[in-house]
Design a protein around this nucleic acid. Structure first.
Lengths: 110, 110
DNA sequence: GAGACATGCAGGTAATTAACTGCATGTCAG
DNA sequence: CTGACATGCAGTTAATTACCTGCATGTCTC
Protein backbone atom coordinates (compact mmCIF):
# COMPACT_ATOMS: atom_id res chain seq x y z
CA UNK A 1 0.00 0.00 0.00
CA UNK A 2 1.31 3.45 -0.90
CA UNK A 3 2.45 5.78 1.88
CA UNK A 4 -0.09 8.46 1.09
CA UNK A 5 -2.83 5.84 1.09
CA UNK A 6 -1.96 4.72 4.62
CA UNK A 7 -2.20 8.30 5.77
CA UNK A 8 -5.57 8.92 4.16
CA UNK A 9 -6.90 5.62 5.52
CA UNK A 10 -5.57 6.40 8.98
CA UNK A 11 -7.24 9.80 8.96
CA UNK A 12 -10.54 8.38 7.71
CA UNK A 13 -11.59 7.20 11.17
CA UNK A 14 -12.96 9.70 13.69
CA UNK A 15 -11.55 7.76 16.66
CA UNK A 16 -8.08 8.02 15.18
CA UNK A 17 -8.48 11.71 14.43
CA UNK A 18 -9.57 12.16 18.04
CA UNK A 19 -6.42 10.38 19.20
CA UNK A 20 -4.30 12.71 17.10
CA UNK A 21 -6.15 15.69 18.56
CA UNK A 22 -5.44 14.43 22.06
CA UNK A 23 -1.76 13.98 21.28
CA UNK A 24 -1.71 17.39 19.68
CA UNK A 25 -3.09 18.86 22.90
CA UNK A 26 -0.59 16.95 25.04
CA UNK A 27 2.30 15.17 23.42
CA UNK A 28 4.08 12.09 24.79
CA UNK A 29 1.09 10.40 26.44
CA UNK A 30 1.14 6.74 27.43
CA UNK A 31 -1.32 4.18 26.10
CA UNK A 32 -3.40 4.07 29.30
CA UNK A 33 -3.41 7.86 29.41
CA UNK A 34 -4.81 7.94 25.89
CA UNK A 35 -7.44 5.38 26.86
CA UNK A 36 -8.96 7.37 29.73
CA UNK A 37 -12.37 8.77 28.91
CA UNK A 38 -12.70 6.74 25.73
CA UNK A 39 -15.57 4.27 25.43
CA UNK A 40 -13.36 1.60 23.92
CA UNK A 41 -11.22 -1.31 25.11
CA UNK A 42 -7.50 -0.65 25.50
CA UNK A 43 -6.77 -3.25 22.82
CA UNK A 44 -8.94 -1.38 20.32
CA UNK A 45 -7.07 1.83 21.04
CA UNK A 46 -3.83 -0.06 20.46
CA UNK A 47 -5.05 -1.13 17.03
CA UNK A 48 -5.84 2.46 16.11
CA UNK A 49 -2.47 3.63 17.38
CA UNK A 50 -0.74 0.89 15.37
CA UNK A 51 -2.43 2.15 12.23
CA UNK A 52 -1.42 5.72 13.01
CA UNK A 53 2.14 4.57 13.59
CA UNK A 54 2.16 2.62 10.31
CA UNK A 55 1.12 5.84 8.61
CA UNK A 56 3.97 7.57 10.40
CA UNK A 57 1.50 9.96 12.01
CA UNK A 58 2.78 9.10 15.47
CA UNK A 59 6.04 7.71 16.77
CA UNK A 60 6.52 5.77 19.98
CA UNK A 61 9.21 5.63 22.60
CA UNK A 62 9.49 3.13 25.43
CA UNK A 63 10.23 4.26 28.96
CA UNK A 64 10.32 1.17 31.14
CA UNK A 65 6.95 -0.49 30.94
CA UNK A 66 5.33 2.63 29.51
CA UNK A 67 4.90 3.41 25.84
CA UNK A 68 4.98 7.10 25.04
CA UNK A 69 3.26 8.43 21.91
CA UNK A 70 4.33 11.47 19.92
CA UNK A 71 2.47 13.14 17.10
CA UNK A 72 4.30 13.68 13.81
CA UNK A 73 2.79 16.33 11.51
CA UNK A 74 4.97 15.53 8.47
CA UNK A 75 2.54 13.16 6.69
CA UNK A 76 -0.25 15.68 7.07
CA UNK A 77 2.00 18.32 5.61
CA UNK A 78 2.70 16.00 2.68
CA UNK A 79 -1.01 15.53 2.09
CA UNK A 80 -1.37 19.25 2.03
CA UNK A 81 1.64 19.74 -0.25
CA UNK A 82 0.84 17.04 -2.79
CA UNK A 83 -2.89 16.87 -2.75
CA UNK A 84 -4.57 19.96 -1.35
CA UNK A 85 -2.36 22.82 -2.44
CA UNK A 86 -3.17 22.25 -6.10
CA UNK A 87 -6.87 22.66 -5.43
CA UNK A 88 -6.20 25.74 -3.36
CA UNK A 89 -4.14 27.00 -6.29
CA UNK A 90 -7.26 26.76 -8.46
CA UNK A 91 -8.97 29.24 -6.18
CA UNK A 92 -6.10 31.68 -6.62
CA UNK A 93 -6.02 31.06 -10.37
CA UNK A 94 -9.74 31.75 -10.55
CA UNK A 95 -9.22 35.04 -8.74
CA UNK A 96 -6.36 35.96 -11.09
CA UNK A 97 -8.47 35.10 -14.13
CA UNK A 98 -11.23 37.29 -12.79
CA UNK A 99 -8.76 40.12 -12.19
CA UNK A 100 -7.34 39.83 -15.71
CA UNK A 101 -10.81 39.66 -17.16
CA UNK A 102 -11.81 42.85 -15.40
CA UNK A 103 -8.62 44.61 -16.49
CA UNK A 104 -9.15 43.54 -20.10
CA UNK A 105 -12.67 44.84 -20.00
CA UNK A 106 -11.32 48.14 -18.77
CA UNK A 107 -8.76 48.19 -21.60
CA UNK A 108 -11.50 47.43 -24.12
CA UNK A 109 -13.22 50.60 -23.02
CA UNK A 110 -10.22 52.73 -23.93
CA UNK B 1 -22.25 10.60 9.99
CA UNK B 2 -20.56 13.98 10.27
CA UNK B 3 -19.83 15.94 7.12
CA UNK B 4 -16.09 16.00 7.65
CA UNK B 5 -16.11 12.26 8.21
CA UNK B 6 -17.78 11.62 4.85
CA UNK B 7 -15.07 13.67 3.19
CA UNK B 8 -12.20 11.86 4.89
CA UNK B 9 -13.80 8.48 4.14
CA UNK B 10 -14.38 9.45 0.52
CA UNK B 11 -10.75 10.52 0.14
CA UNK B 12 -9.45 7.34 1.80
CA UNK B 13 -9.81 5.27 -1.36
CA UNK B 14 -7.23 5.60 -4.15
CA UNK B 15 -9.81 4.86 -6.88
CA UNK B 16 -11.90 7.76 -5.66
CA UNK B 17 -8.90 10.07 -5.47
CA UNK B 18 -8.07 9.04 -9.05
CA UNK B 19 -11.61 9.94 -10.11
CA UNK B 20 -11.24 13.36 -8.52
CA UNK B 21 -7.93 13.82 -10.31
CA UNK B 22 -9.55 12.94 -13.63
CA UNK B 23 -12.36 15.42 -13.00
CA UNK B 24 -9.81 18.00 -11.95
CA UNK B 25 -8.03 17.48 -15.28
CA UNK B 26 -11.30 17.69 -17.23
CA UNK B 27 -14.46 18.83 -15.55
CA UNK B 28 -18.01 17.84 -16.53
CA UNK B 29 -17.30 14.28 -17.69
CA UNK B 30 -20.06 11.71 -18.08
CA UNK B 31 -20.12 8.41 -16.24
CA UNK B 32 -19.01 6.35 -19.25
CA UNK B 33 -16.27 8.88 -19.97
CA UNK B 34 -14.99 8.46 -16.41
CA UNK B 35 -15.12 4.68 -16.80
CA UNK B 36 -12.85 4.48 -19.86
CA UNK B 37 -9.43 3.07 -19.06
CA UNK B 38 -10.43 1.95 -15.59
CA UNK B 39 -10.22 -1.75 -14.76
CA UNK B 40 -13.56 -1.72 -12.98
CA UNK B 41 -17.23 -2.29 -13.81
CA UNK B 42 -19.33 0.78 -14.51
CA UNK B 43 -21.50 -0.03 -11.51
CA UNK B 44 -18.49 0.05 -9.22
CA UNK B 45 -17.50 3.46 -10.53
CA UNK B 46 -21.06 4.62 -9.88
CA UNK B 47 -20.74 3.55 -6.25
CA UNK B 48 -17.52 5.51 -5.85
CA UNK B 49 -19.07 8.55 -7.49
CA UNK B 50 -22.11 8.27 -5.20
CA UNK B 51 -19.82 8.38 -2.18
CA UNK B 52 -17.98 11.40 -3.58
CA UNK B 53 -21.30 13.09 -4.21
CA UNK B 54 -22.50 12.33 -0.67
CA UNK B 55 -19.31 13.99 0.58
CA UNK B 56 -20.15 16.96 -1.64
CA UNK B 57 -16.83 16.51 -3.45
CA UNK B 58 -18.60 16.32 -6.78
CA UNK B 59 -21.94 17.57 -8.06
CA UNK B 60 -23.91 16.11 -10.93
CA UNK B 61 -26.06 17.56 -13.65
CA UNK B 62 -28.27 15.65 -16.06
CA UNK B 63 -28.24 16.39 -19.77
CA UNK B 64 -30.70 14.04 -21.41
CA UNK B 65 -29.56 10.51 -20.78
CA UNK B 66 -26.08 11.67 -19.75
CA UNK B 67 -24.94 12.44 -16.21
CA UNK B 68 -22.26 15.12 -16.03
CA UNK B 69 -19.88 15.23 -13.06
CA UNK B 70 -18.28 18.35 -11.64
CA UNK B 71 -15.58 18.57 -9.02
CA UNK B 72 -16.18 20.76 -5.98
CA UNK B 73 -13.05 21.78 -4.04
CA UNK B 74 -14.90 23.30 -1.05
CA UNK B 75 -14.87 20.23 1.24
CA UNK B 76 -11.14 19.83 0.66
CA UNK B 77 -10.65 23.45 1.53
CA UNK B 78 -12.63 22.87 4.73
CA UNK B 79 -10.40 19.94 5.65
CA UNK B 80 -7.44 22.18 5.16
CA UNK B 81 -8.96 25.05 7.12
CA UNK B 82 -10.24 23.08 10.09
CA UNK B 83 -7.81 20.24 10.34
CA UNK B 84 -4.51 20.85 8.61
CA UNK B 85 -3.87 24.54 9.06
CA UNK B 86 -3.51 24.16 12.83
CA UNK B 87 -0.73 21.62 12.36
CA UNK B 88 0.94 23.85 9.81
CA UNK B 89 0.63 26.67 12.33
CA UNK B 90 2.69 24.60 14.77
CA UNK B 91 5.56 24.63 12.30
CA UNK B 92 5.41 28.41 12.10
CA UNK B 93 5.11 28.70 15.88
CA UNK B 94 8.14 26.48 16.29
CA UNK B 95 10.11 28.73 13.96
CA UNK B 96 8.97 31.81 15.85
CA UNK B 97 9.93 30.24 19.17
CA UNK B 98 13.33 29.44 17.78
CA UNK B 99 13.72 32.99 16.53
CA UNK B 100 12.76 34.46 19.91
CA UNK B 101 15.03 32.06 21.69
CA UNK B 102 17.98 33.11 19.57
CA UNK B 103 17.19 36.79 20.09
CA UNK B 104 16.95 36.34 23.86
CA UNK B 105 20.27 34.56 23.90
CA UNK B 106 21.76 37.48 22.04
CA UNK B 107 20.25 39.90 24.59
CA UNK B 108 21.64 37.85 27.45
CA UNK B 109 25.09 38.38 26.05
CA UNK B 110 24.78 42.16 26.28
C1' DG C 1 -41.34 2.84 -33.14
C1' DA C 2 -36.96 0.10 -33.05
C1' DG C 3 -32.40 -0.45 -31.87
C1' DA C 4 -28.49 1.57 -29.63
C1' DC C 5 -26.88 3.74 -25.72
C1' DA C 6 -26.40 5.86 -20.82
C1' DT C 7 -27.50 4.98 -16.60
C1' DG C 8 -30.17 3.01 -12.47
C1' DC C 9 -31.43 -0.62 -9.39
C1' DA C 10 -31.20 -5.05 -6.86
C1' DG C 11 -28.92 -8.72 -5.06
C1' DG C 12 -24.69 -11.49 -3.92
C1' DT C 13 -19.87 -12.34 -2.30
C1' DA C 14 -15.21 -12.04 -0.60
C1' DA C 15 -12.07 -9.03 1.82
C1' DT C 16 -11.34 -5.73 5.23
C1' DT C 17 -12.23 -3.52 9.49
C1' DA C 18 -13.29 -2.27 14.17
C1' DA C 19 -14.53 -3.89 17.92
C1' DC C 20 -14.40 -7.44 21.66
C1' DT C 21 -12.46 -11.30 25.26
C1' DG C 22 -8.94 -13.92 27.40
C1' DC C 23 -4.44 -14.75 28.51
C1' DA C 24 0.79 -13.82 28.39
C1' DT C 25 4.82 -10.98 29.13
C1' DG C 26 7.60 -7.68 31.12
C1' DT C 27 8.51 -3.86 34.59
C1' DC C 28 8.11 -1.31 38.78
C1' DA C 29 7.71 -0.72 43.99
C1' DG C 30 7.75 -2.37 48.52
C1' DC D 1 10.15 -12.06 45.63
C1' DT D 2 5.55 -10.75 45.03
C1' DG D 3 1.75 -8.18 43.71
C1' DA D 4 0.23 -4.39 40.97
C1' DC D 5 0.44 -2.35 36.71
C1' DA D 6 1.38 -1.33 31.50
C1' DT D 7 1.26 -3.39 27.55
C1' DG D 8 1.42 -7.30 23.97
C1' DC D 9 -0.51 -11.13 21.50
C1' DA D 10 -4.06 -14.36 19.61
C1' DG D 11 -8.52 -15.52 18.23
C1' DT D 12 -13.68 -14.29 17.41
C1' DT D 13 -17.36 -11.73 15.57
C1' DA D 14 -20.36 -8.32 13.37
C1' DA D 15 -20.38 -4.52 10.30
C1' DT D 16 -18.72 -2.38 6.34
C1' DT D 17 -16.74 -2.20 1.90
C1' DA D 18 -15.58 -2.88 -2.82
C1' DC D 19 -16.32 -5.37 -6.03
C1' DC D 20 -19.24 -8.22 -9.28
C1' DT D 21 -23.57 -9.94 -12.39
C1' DG D 22 -28.10 -9.50 -14.26
C1' DC D 23 -31.87 -6.92 -15.46
C1' DA D 24 -34.76 -2.50 -15.82
C1' DT D 25 -35.56 2.24 -17.19
C1' DG D 26 -35.25 6.15 -19.78
C1' DT D 27 -33.40 8.81 -23.88
C1' DC D 28 -31.50 9.64 -28.25
C1' DT D 29 -31.33 8.65 -33.57
C1' DC D 30 -33.00 7.08 -37.69
Amino acid sequence: MKEIDKVFKALADPSRRALIDRLHAKNGQTLSELCTGLDMARQSVTQHLDLLEAANLISVEWRGREKLHYFNPVPIHKIYARWIRKFEQDRLDALLDLKNELENERNDDE
